[in-house]
Simulated scan of single mutants.
Amino acid sequence: MSPRAVGVRAGFAEMPAALRAWVVEVLGSPIVETREMTGGMSPGCATRVRCADGRRAFVKAVGTPLNPDTPTMFRREAAVLGLLGQHPLWAALQASYDDDEWVGLVLEDVEGAHPDLAEEATIGALLAATDSLGAVLAERVPSPDAAAHGFNDFRVAATNWAASFDDVRRLDEVPVPDWVRDDLDGWQAKVAGLAAYDVECLQHWDIRNDNLVQRPDGSIVFVDWGQAMVGPVWLDPLLARLERAEDPWFDGSLASSSALAAAGDDTVTTWLVGFGTMLAVRTVTAADINLPTLAAFRRSESTRMLTAAARRLDLGAHLPEQ
């Protein structure tokens, strides 16, 4: 299946010579073939490489000349995978490079392709894998410290989402539906309340089809850990279901997760409104350097989140046509 998020990437050949030489040194053999991958929003390379001795690896790299913020995400991914070690649920980190300007990762090259989450068996495999991932993360990193490792913190995110309602008040062009604008105070208070949840677990926090690889045997692998977050236990199970947020299947699927069932329907709907509103605000306020497709992706995702929330609230309301 094609990835849902697709940016514009530089190729491996466009990376600095010192970084490319480091990759060859790590792999211990000259690179004889490169295949550039699509998916994700980083402006840097995402390249499958094959060496003269047959060894394969996946190389991703980015630098501040391409985008000032993305190297931080790559550093976060290296920190997460360094803590986690190896497991079939994710692509193992083999080495990382950081010269303060450019960051590179050499990762296990996982055989497979992005999964088609419209297929019942595949979405079922993802939900099961997400539950397994939560258990493994809790075992490997039982007391995650967001500040110590540079991970995102859900409490900070929820607070920022709540603040985005102030932007809706002052910016008429933010693309949110009337039912959000008609109750900004109420929704802002509810979204701010999400910050009260315990943040006891390390979460992938970026589960979507372009950050997943399905092996030939059907098993799911989680890749791209640059958004990793310390958050509540229900966060990744929620994200794993978002591919179908606009479908009533989403509502029925929540009961199959004990964590989501415990969080409750109101929490899920509030999350959708908070996340969708934040994304809508970012479509008109963010400066996306070398990320030409990101604004449209945010708008599309915001539409999906807020349409799902409207359905769950039985409002029969949707965003204006894009």
Rank of each mutant, 00 (worst) to 15 (best):
A138K: 09
F154P: 06
L254Q: 02
F297S: 01
F250H: 00
D69E: 07
A295R: 14
F74G: 02
G226C: 06
D217L: 08
R304D: 03
D288L: 14
S2W: 07
E200N: 14
H204D: 05
S258T: 15
Q86I: 13
W161F: 15
A46Q: 05
R35V: 10
S256R: 08
T269H: 02
Q214D: 07
P248F: 00
E120H: 08
N160H: 07
T159R: 15
S302N: 02
N290H: 10
A121E: 15
A135D: 14
T277A: 12
Q188Y: 04
T70I: 15
T277P: 11
I123F: 01
G104V: 08
D166S: 13
D99A: 07
D172Q: 09
G150S: 07
A195K: 10
G112M: 13
K190C: 08
R140C: 11
A309L: 05
C51G: 11
T307A: 09
V284F: 04
G231A: 13
R170Y: 04
P144Q: 09
L126F: 02
S96A: 14
V23W: 01
P237H: 03
S29K: 03
D167M: 11
S132G: 14
G231H: 14
V199T: 15
R4K: 07
Y97T: 04
G44T: 02
R312E: 01
G40K: 06
T122K: 04
E120G: 10
G63P: 13
V223S: 07
V223I: 15
G186R: 06
R312P: 00
I31M: 03
R75W: 04
V281F: 08
L291Y: 06
T122L: 03
S164M: 15
W249R: 00
A135F: 04
T34W: 02
T285F: 08
S2H: 14
L319A: 12
V59A: 01
G193D: 08
W249M: 00
T307I: 02
A192M: 04
E14H: 12
V49A: 08
T64Y: 11
D251N: 00
D166Y: 04
L93S: 12
D247V: 00
P43D: 02
K60A: 05
A79G: 09
P43Q: 04
I31L: 11
F154N: 06
L254H: 00
T34G: 03
P115R: 13
N67I: 01
I31S: 03
L117V: 05
E119H: 13
T293P: 03
A46K: 13
E33V: 13
L315P: 11
P237T: 04
E119Y: 07
W234S: 10
R282Q: 15
F250K: 00
P142K: 06
G274E: 02
L137F: 08
V281M: 11
V59H: 06
S256M: 03
C201Q: 09
K190F: 06
I207C: 04
P320D: 15
N209E: 08
L254R: 01
K190Y: 00
A310I: 05
L107P: 12
L294I: 14
R35Q: 06
R181I: 05
S143M: 09
P3C: 07
T38H: 07
G124L: 09
D224I: 05
H149D: 11
A195W: 05
L254V: 01
R76F: 06
L313D: 10
T267M: 07
R208N: 10
